[in-house]
């Protein structure tokens, strides 16, 4: 279990994350949602160990974050940041290969090929990373971080994704979420920051709603993501059409135009 207690993170005495506690269970997809500046990415960085916070503690499988060496941590969790730029002419294969770094020599011969086929990056293997489109770059980075934790291990592991689908088209977004569904089954807990409410509602096991540095709601997607909560978090009229076995949940944000029209009619 990835556990965060009382995370308090300030920049120049302004609290960015204010006393946040959360739990990420292996085998589940937890999605963090919230408006810009809610502190999602900061919380994410504290969880991954990239930012150290003075107050509060993070532990992986019961062991505090600061007791891990970088290499050990890399074997327990894999992180995909929002943007990764590359100034040198690396090929796609070389970028994905970097995911092998923390594994030493303990990996199967087909690991890279399997991951790259799953993420539809195998065809791109000889291309230069710099020449790819935004969505392709994200797929390559996803392949890299998946490589790091792809093979089964006897202990629970975690995958942290900061807006992994932000530049992808609709089909690819669903493709990535279905890969995440698969990787969950390997005793891996996945944490993703998403902006698409519909993806979150239909794929997440647990949803965390953040606003102004606080976690306002935390729980099962269907109970947390209701019209009232979402409107409170995003300060915008939103309508949730709860789905069931046969139909997906649909969440609609209402354009100002139609609100104005409604007011006029009334």
């Amino acid at each position: 279990m990835l556990q965060a207690n009382d995370i308090h993170f300030c920049i120049q005495n302004r609290p960015i994350v204010d006393r946040a506690s959360m739990v990420l269970r292996p085998g589940e997809l937890t999605v963090i949602l919230g408006p810009n500046g809610a502190g999602k990415s900061s919380l994410f960085k504290v969880l991954s160990g990239e930012q150290v916070c003075k107050d509060g503690r993070v532990s992986y499988n019961g062991r505090p974050l600061d007791q891990f060496k970088n290499r050990q941590l890399a074997q327990v969790r894999s992180v995909m940041p929002q943007h990764s730029s590359l100034n040198f002419p690396f090929s796609v294969l070389e970028v994905v290969e970097l995911g092998l770094l923390p594994l030493g020599k303990n990996y199967g011969v087909d690991l890279l090929q399997e991951v790259m086929k799953q993420t539809q990056t195998w065809e791109l293997r000889d291309c230069l990373y710099g020449n790819l489109s935004g969505g392709e770059k994200q797929r390559v980075q996803l392949a890299r971080v998946l490589t790091q934790i792809w093979e089964k291990k006897p202990f629970p592991r975690y995958l942290l994704l900061d807006e992994p689908t932000s530049s992808m088209d609709i089909a690819l977004q669903h493709h990535v979420l279905s890969i995440i569904q698969k990787i969950k089954e390997r005793n891996i807990g996945v944490l993703a920051i998403l902006h698409d409410l519909n993806l979150a509602a239909n794929y997440a096991d647990q949803v965390i709603l953040m606003k102004k540095g606080n976690i306002l709601f935390q729980g099962k997607a269907e109970s947390v993501m209701n019209t009232e909560n979402l409107m409170q978090v995003f300060d915008h009229p939103i309508k949730v059409y709860q789905g069931d076995e046969r139909r997906p949940t649909i969440i609609q944000s209402i354009p100002f135009k139609s609100i104005n029209n409604q007011i006029k009619q009334a």
């Binding site: 990239e50 970088n70 290499r71 941590l73 890399a74 990764s84 690396f90 970097l98 923390p102 971080v145």
Partner: peptide, 12 residues
Amino acid sequence: AIGENEAFHMGV
């Protein structure tokens, strides 16, 4: 080459 944070996440 992909970034300092990325390198850290990969255990460097």
